[in-house]
């Protein structure tokens, strides 16, 4: 097992109380696995991604453990966590377009970043990785503004994976890109995994369609909890959780004329995480909810590698 997250609870401290953005989430990842983490806005996927590398000032680790390659990550301790960052856990941020210091040449910045982590810059290795993502080597002598959006994205991918981290968190990396660039980025990420630059990867996205192409396993979250986790193919073809079913039904299909067949969405919106309802959190929007849903559904492995948190599954 590469990553083991057990009963992780991360809350946001606010003046009105704790926002339970991540409430009792447990899952594991194998070596070499790409986990697609999907869900609508505010379901806790970015919080999970951030928790694994660097919590922001408002986030509090309330319980649960994270274990990477057999070592426990001190995720609640910003200082002790530093040792793991970049070396063991790395991040491709949502904001790749502005992730590089605008007033430093890229090559120089990479050298300074590595130097500050006590690693000497291996120019040849860096250049070979640039070749891999089809960036010209001269970008190292450029300033970030001289690169296009897609180039910056690829540059950040190269920087983030330079120390061969065990776990890479790719947070909404394709959100701001056009479709053909999305495909190139997805391919590059798979290439990194195949080349052994990263052992395993969490691909955070709200784009289920794209996830199903690159992820081995898809995990769907709802309101800070795990809803369903299954191999990508199973998730798309035979989802068990009513939320996942509705989510997949609301994806447009190629060749379907939506003038004839209205694209269905999911009525309602997720509950407030400040004071989430007892029992199943999807209950209010669920078409099949029953009395037992007043109790919180446990996460059950209905088939090998297929976990669902639903009484009706």
């Amino acid at each position: 097992m590469s990553l083991r997250v057990s009963e992780l609870r991360v809350y946001y401290r606010t003046l009105k109380g704790d926002v339970k953005a991540l409430d009792d989430v447990s899952f594991t990842m194998r070596d070499g696995e790409i986990l697609g983490l999907a869900g609508e806005s505010g379901c806790g996927k970015t919080t999970l991604g951030k928790s694994l590398i660097r919590m922001d000032g408002r986030m509090r680790h309330m319980g649960g453990t994270v274990e990477l390659d057999g070592r426990e990550l001190p995720i609640g301790d910003d200082r002790r966590m530093n040792e793991f960052r970049f070396h063991e856990v790395s991040l491709i941020p949502q904001y790749s377009m502005s992730a590089m210091n605008p007033t430093r040449k890229i090559g120089k910045m990479v050298g300074e970043l590595l130097g500050s982590r006590g690693v000497a810059l291996d120019r040849a290795e860096l250049e070979s990785r640039l070749d891999l993502v089809e960036l010209p080597r001269k970008v190292l002598d450029n300033y970030p503004i001289e690169l296009s959006g897609g180039m910056k994205q690829r540059m950040v991918m190269v920087i983030s994976t330079l120390l061969n981290p065990s776990l890479l968190i790719a947070d909404e990396v394709t959100s701001a890109l056009d479709v053909s660039t999305q495909k190139a980025v997805a391919k590059a990420l798979i290439g990194f995994r195949d080349a052994g630059f990263v052992k395993s990867m969490i691909f955070v996205t709200h784009d289920l369609a794209l996830t199903s192409h690159i992820a081995d396993t898809i995990m769907v979250m709802y309101a800070g909890k795990l809803a369903e986790k299954a191999p990508a193919k199973v998730m798309v073809t035979a989802p068990r959780h009513p939320y996942t079913k509705l989510l997949i039904n609301s994806l447009p299909e190629v060749g379907v004329r939506h003038a004839d067949k209205k694209l269905s969405g999911i009525a309602g919106s997720p509950p407030s995480l400040l004071d989430p309802p007892a029992g199943c959190r999807f209950r209010a929007r669920c078409p099949v909810a029953g009395d037992e849903c007043g109790q919180e559904p446990p996460v059950v492995e209905v088939e090998p590698d297929h976990f669902v948190a639903c009484w009706k599954a």
Binding site: I53, R54, N82, E83, F84, R85, F86, H87, S90, L91, P93, Y95, S98, A99, M100, N101, P102, L113, S116, R117, V156, I159, S160
Partner: peptide, 11 residues
């Protein structure tokens, strides 16, 4: 963003 990114990489 660049400060956040550097922090996330443990700079």
């Amino acid at each position: 963003d660049y400060s956040n990114y550097l922090s996330a990489l443990g700079a």
